[in-house]
Design a protein around this nucleic acid. Structure first.
Length: 850
RNA sequence: GCCGAUGUGGCGGAAUGGUAGACGCAACGGACUUAAAAUCCGUUGGGCUGUAAUUGGCCCGUGCCGGUUCGAGUCCGGCCAUCGGCACCA
């Protein structure tokens, strides 16, 4: 025997043993329809994790939290007779590998391969039941060939407002298809970081600074690929209703889309034959509109500004353009602006009102212009006060708030045609009135912008697009995948030109044509990976039709039955993937309008100090260390025992020890160590009938564990199994059949120890049963849970006063009589009037006295 | 500022409107041991109190204030705190 500390049970031997067996037998491989061993009689269940970015740091304890939950569900569903699709892959394009390449010159593909190998071995050590035959990697040309192919489908379609669907561009009857494609080119402001010499994605900009390095970021217009996600806003909103997602996540998506209903109003400009269009949600306040404000970048500014005001306007515009995002945020407290010298006519009052420019009006929202209604809008009020503009109250609050600065709904006043109407009525009436005069109409606005889809990066999917004479066109499908060229130098060019520009040979497609040099964002690969898992090796199609129909099938609109991951993807990934799914659905490539039917978010695991885990705090817990010390089963069970899955919770080293002790008790319940230090089946384990109490405990455990897995309460399922084991700690004899059933219950949580004990019981008792993973989930017998006697709580005025044992069959009258004659009750109610007696059968009696 | 989530012992947490604190950790006491570790047994929300001792008895208690109810951790209203998201969105 070795001198180092003995393991409480030999997890260090049995865990690798079973992992090797699962691998060798490919027990968790799910065959597709038509393949060998596919069983069409079984229902399907698709349970998916958000696949990780394989970073150099390796797995973090946060990753396996969700993965363990889905693994429990996957194993549980298999035991329930489902065909379970439970895959894993790698979202491997991304900045860290590229930055490592810049530093060391090592190609990102090599870094990625190493990191994937590390992640994979770490995941395998935890014993997850993934179908590794379906492993995918977004940076594999065999995968991104189809990412590029899907891009081409998007590029080659348009949104037909009449059918409310994406359609092939060939059905478009207009003159310029490039204007309506779902993928198009536009000059848009991007996040330019001069210090890093590159463009950043919105999510890489935090409070006006680059996430990496903390350098200032400015807005700068550049020609970019955009995806027309805004065409799908209504369907993206409506689709949410049918999904089993946390309400909070649905709300985040709704807020992000930011639908608001109102009106567009046209203001005539004095002396200029143009109109300024304004969007407002409060057309009922039009009579209070005493000025207009345009965004500094608004296209009409040049046209309307007077000679006299021109220098001031130009200076303001230049300053606004130079402002970094940080400054814009910082200076937001104090309103700034400049008068253009021009006037517009308020269509309701026919009065002349001044036109200003100010950077509190954003070009990107609505029409880039607003009607200033200072009496009923905080920002307009602040602006009017600062620049001494007139203020007219037009809404009377129904409460006793002061009308000036009142932004709620009330009764219209000082507004001739709508006076006396509620805000809701007034909105309708004035919008109709404007419509009749051709100076306005109902309108809906969204915060959601089209998706900026190009990046000036090396480590991403190149666009399958070529340029000729300033016109873009699709690369033929047979030229996919389009593989990025090798580079010696991955550094950004510093000018905003993509790094691929350095590959002079590669970008030359022919004498007259050049390749697109931008690459796709990291989101591209994750927009459809859940589809690819259904048929990961298909070389002829992005997924086979039959496989897609089978695994994404079911009654509900979403195809993936269960999707687990962090809230950090609440908006972007989940919205982008829904968008692609809808395009593919419209084009008849997939069978479902939504990708993910049920979504569950796991909470963040904090460090032992209750702080977010981070390198700088030194509070990171490494899964490998935990597994070395306590084993994978203990690691899995602890992650689930910590608390509710969705909740944020701190790690506890002692907590892991507690769960490890539980598993050791399970082991010693069935095993004893002989003189030679070998583990053998305990002679307490016998093929005998269970006592009534043991039967009851077993069935209560089956019931609780089943219900708890169904409701994702894995922590209380483990508590119940602890209670079960505690109940047998000092048993003289342990019935074999009870233990076998228990091992099936334990299997989804602790697959290694349950497999090993199952096998050893078989060896000992000469039984030829299959592996524990091949069993069926046990059913419980409600009859065995019924007691002869129950404890009845006796309350006086709702306070506990006594407990008594009563036969289960006792009638309400009997319970009442016994309660009233109880000596403790008697003592307390002498001289008082019994008003009422409430009897809850089998539970309690409450005596109400005064 | 707006929206959302959460608030229960020393700690993680458990409780279909019906016994608050299951289960686990930590702590303390005991058994086993030459000793320690491991294991097993017991105690453990707070306060007051009873008896030689034991079984006890009483009051308070789920962020705070109020309400509904025979009965509230749970439902309703108002506040406070923490966390997360959005943030001049017209």
């Amino acid at each position: 025997m070795s001198s180092d500390r003995r393991k409480p049970y030999p997890f260090d031997q049995i865990e690798p043993k079973w992992q090797a067996i699962w691998d060798e037998r490919q027990l968790f491989h799910a065959p597709n329809p038509g393949e060998k061993d596919f069983d069409p009689a079984k229902p399907k269940f698709y349970v998916l994790d958000m696949f990780p970015y394989p970073s150099g740091a390796g797995l973090h304890v946060g990753h396996p939290e969700g993965y363990t939950a889905t693994d429990i569900v996957a194993r549980y569903k298999r035991l329930h007779g489902f065909n379970v699709l439970h895959p894993m892959g790698w979202d491997a394009f991304g900045l860290p590998a590229e930055q490592y390449a810049i530093k060391t010159g090592q190609h990102p593909a090599i870094t990625t391969r190493e990191n994937v190998a590390k992640f994979k071995s770490q995941l395998k050590r935890i014993g997850f039941s993934y179908d590794w035959q379906r492993e995918i990697n977004t940076t594999d040309p065999k995968y991104y060939k189809w990412t590029q192919w899907i891009f081409l489908q998007i590029y080659n379609s348009w949104f037909n407002p009449e059918t409310n669907r994406a359609e092939p561009i060939s059905t478009y009857r207009g003159t310029d298809p490039d204007r309506v494609r779902l993928a198009y080119i536009a000059d848009v402001p991007v996040n330019w970081c001069p210090e890093l010499g590159t463009v950043l994605a919105n999510e890489e900009v935090v409070e006006g600074k680059s996430e990496v390095g903390g350098f200032p970021v400015v807005r700068r217009p550049m020609r970019q690929w955009m995806l027309r996600i805004t065409a799908f806003t209504e369907r993206l909103l409506d689709g949410l209703d049918e999904l089993d997602w946390p309400e909070g996540i649905k709300l985040l998506q709704r807020n992000w889309i930011g639908r608001s209903q109102g009106a567009e109003i046209n203001f005539k400009i004095e002396n200029v034959d143009q109109q300024i269009r304004v969007f407002t949600t409060r057309p009922d306040t039009l009579y209070g509109g005493t000025f207009l404000v345009l965004a500094p970048e608004h296209s009409l500014v040049d046209l309307i500004v007077t000679e006299e005001q021109w220098p001031a306007v130009r200076e303001y515009r230049e300053r606004a353009a130079r402002k970094s995002e940080l400054e814009r945020v910082d200076l937001s407290k104090e309103k700034t602006g400049v008068f253009t010298g021009a006037y517009a006519i308020n269509p309701a009052t026919d009065k002349k009102i001044p036109i200003w420019i100010a950077d509190y009006v954003l070009v990107g929202y609505g029409t880039g212009a607003i009607g200033g209604v200072p009496a009923h809008d905080e920002r307009d009020l602040e602006f009017a006060k600062k620049f001494d503009l007139p203020i007219v109250v037009v809404v009377q609050p129904t409460g006793d708030e002061p009308p000036l600065g009142f932004i709620g709904e009330g009764i219209a006043i000082n507004s001739p045609i709508i006076n006396g109407l509620t805000s809701a009525e007034a909105k309708k009436k004035i919008t109709g009135w404007l419509e009749e005069r051709g100076s306005g109409k109902r309108a809906i606005n969204y915060k959601l912008r089209d998706w900026l889809f190009s990046r000036q990066r090396y480590w991403g999917e190149p666009f399958p697009i070529v340029w000729e004479n300033g016109k873009h066109r699709a690369l033929p499908e047979k030229e996919l995948p389009l593989i990025p060229p090798p580079l010696d130098d991955y550094k950004p060019t510093g000018t905003g030109e993509p790094p691929l520009a350095k590959a002079k040979e590669w970008i030359r497609y022919s004498d007259k044509t050049m390749r697109e040099m931008n690459t796709m964002p990291q989101w591209a690969g994750s927009c459809w990976y859940y589809l690819r898992f259904s048929d990961p090796h298909n070389d002829g199609r992005f997924v086979g039709e039959e496989a897609e129909r089978y695994w994404m099938g079911g009654e509900k609109p979403g195809g993936v039955d269960l999707y687990v991951g962090g809230t950090e993807h609440a908006v972007l990934h989940l919205l982008y993937a829904r968008f692609w799914q809808k395009v593919l659905f419209d084009l008849d490539y997939v069978s479902k309008p939504e990708p993910f039917q049920r979504l569950v978010n796991q909470g963040i695991i904090l460090g032992e100090d209750n702080q977010k885990m981070s390198k700088s705090r030194g509070n990171i817990v490494n899964p490998d260390d935990v597994i070395d010390q306590h084993g994978a089963d203990a690691f899995r069970c602890y992650e689930m025992f910590m608390g509710p899955l969705e909740q944020m919770k701190p790690w506890s080293t002692h907590g892991v020890e507690g769960v490890a002790r539980f598993l050791a008790r399970v082991w010693r319940l069935l095993m004893t160590e002989n003189q030679g230090g070998e583990w053998e089946i305990s002679n307490k384990v016998q093929a005998i009938d269970a006592t009534k109490a043991q039967q009851k405990l077993l069935h209560a455990t089956i019931k609780k564990v089943t219900a708890d897995i169904e409701s994702f309460s894995f922590n209380t399922a483990i508590s119940q199994m602890m209670i079960f084991v505690n109940g047998f700690t000092n048993a003289e004899a342990i019935p074999l059949s009870v233990m076998r059933t228990f091992l099936v219950l334990l299997n989804p949580f602790a697959p290694h120890i349950s497999s090993e004990l199952w096998e050893r019981l078989n060896a000992e008792f000469g039984d030829a049963r299959e592996d524990v993973t091949q069993q069926s989930w046990p059913a419980y017998d409600e009859q065995l849970l019924v007691e002869d006697e129950v404890e009845i709580v006796i309350q006086i005025n709702g306070k506990l006063r006594d407990r008594i044992k009563m036969p289960i069959a006792a009638t309400d009258e009997e319970l009442k009589a016994v309660a009233l004659s109880d000596p403790k009750v008697q003592d307390r109610i002498v001289g008082k009037a019994v008003r009422k007696v409430i009897v809850v059968p089998k539970k309690l009696v409450n005596i109400v006295v005064t």
